[in-house]
Amino acid sequence: MSLTASFDVKQNVLIVRLSGELDHHESETLRSEWKKMMHKNNITHVILNLEDVSFMDSSGLGVVLGRYKEVLQLGGEMVVCSISAPVYRLFDMSGMFKIVRLEENEEHALSALGVAS
């Protein structure tokens, strides 16, 4: 099962919705698409919707961390939402929740960033 990514821009927020399995193989295409979307639009914050991610490993974390660093440089915040139990464990174990904010769903994430959905 491969990975599909869809992007949506709301004001200065980039919403990234992933579906499928995020491993090293999938991470390279995702990285370049994600970077392109951030640079093409005037983005400050990123919302990462992981609802349909069925598998992720440390290569997936690497891509998320890379974008987190970019968002930080833009003075923004990264919010992760709709996370599944196995991906939650991976994030928790890796200390990701110390740096990215967790919200229940996209709507909550948007309002946390001060954007009306």
Binding site: R31, D57, S58, S59, L61, V63, L90, M93, S94
Partner: peptide, 14 residues
């Protein structure tokens, strides 16, 4: 330079 998280072996240990 490859944006690796460096968590591979830590995850395996866990």
């Amino acid at each position: 330079e490859l944006e690796r998280s460096g968590m591979g072996f830590t995850i395996i240990e866990n």
